[in-house]
């Protein structure tokens, strides 16, 4: 679904490339998590996948980024917006302000794409229903909690029905309850066939929800695989990514000789329990 080949980008007047020689593949209908230290180029990558770079950002761009078979840099931003939805960090900044109720806020993107009114009403109601926003439709979007605002931001992308959704640290400003809401929605969207790319630093959450993980370090993808293999990698900390607490505990146990050096490090609660049980039993 998403194919990045040897992509490089340097911002205007920047001394170095933010991304270079970057390759990324995301299969249709899966959830791909992207982790990386701050400053590793995550937001830039999100904007490239969503078609905002190079079209709204001056600088040096190379390589090809294609989504659903179309090379984004060869089309207009509107064409890119039709295939990829983009959700960013701060819920407050994503409320357009152009409309006074959640219902109209959700319809805003459809209005701008000249969707017919009857169809608009249908699609807004359907998305509000899926994302559990029906009770909020007549409220002011600014009267919502941060988590609800972020759901509105996601819903206003989903209503435009892009096959791909890119989220750039969507839960960094949310409390645990808001974070939970967002991930539940992503799981449901993925079941419905949407391809999801999520940039996130909470590895526990990614392990729980993603089909695949890619690690971004110094401007390129340095590791890709299932959450279990990528997060168990000893090099994770050298890439500036924190391991899950289970992995940390297992490493600590290994260092103290409680686990064999050859043991594959666990990432989540259940495989952690399994590893500890197995080795405890061996003792």
């Amino acid at each position: 679904m998403i194919e990045l080949r040897d992509v490089a980008f340097a911002y205007e007047d920047a001394p170095a490339f933010t991304l270079a020689h970057l390759d990324l593949d995301v299969a249709a209908g899966t959830i791909m998590g992207i982790v990386g230290a701050s400053g590793s180029g995550k937001t830039t990558l999100a904007k490239i996948i969503a078609g905002f770079i190079p079209s709204t950002e001056g600088g040096t761009y190379r390589g090809t980024a294609s989504v659903a078979g179309a090379v984004l840099s060869e089309g207009t931003l509107t064409e890119a917006v039709d295939v990829v939805g983009l959700v960013t960090q701060n819920p407050f900044n994503q409320i357009s302000g152009a409309r006074f109720t959640v219902r109209e806020e959700l319809a805003f993107g459809l209005e701008n794409r000249s969707v017919e009114r009857s169809q608009m009403i249908e699609r807004v109601d359907a998305v509000a229903d899926t994302l559990g926003l029906t009770a909020l439709l007549d409220r002011s979007p600014y009267a919502l909690s941060g988590g609800q605002m972020q759901l509105v931001a996601i819903a206003s992308m989903v209503v435009m029905a892009p096959p791909v959704l890119v989220l750039d640290e969507p839960t960094s400003q949310l409390d645990p309850a808001g974070t939970r809401l967002v991930y539940d929605v992503l799981a449901r969207l993925s079941e419905g066939g949407t391809t999801v790319v999520i940039i996130e630093h909470k590895t526990e959450l990614l392990h729980e929800h993603c089909d695949a993980i890619s690690v971004l370090a110094s401007g390129r993808i340095v590791s890709t695989g299932t959450p279990a293999t990528v997060f168990a990698d000893d090099r994770l900390s050298t890439w500036g990514v924190g391991q899950t607490r289970i992995t940390q505990a297992a490493r600590e146990a290994r260092a103290r000789g409680l686990l064999p050096v050859t043991a594959l490090l666990p990432v989540g609660v259940s495989d952690g329990a399994a590893v500890f049980a197995e080795n405890g039993a061996a003792r």
């Binding site: 920047a14 020689h21 040096t60 761009y61 110094s218």
Partner: peptide
């Protein structure tokens, strides 16, 4: 005056930002 954007085809040009080596 801002530096002219570097030519993508000529990474060795003096104005171009340094691009890391390929893996």
């Amino acid at each position: 005056a801002p530096v002219a954007p570097a030519e993508p085809a000529a990474p060795a040009a003096p104005a171009a930002p340094a691009e890391p080596e390929a893996p």
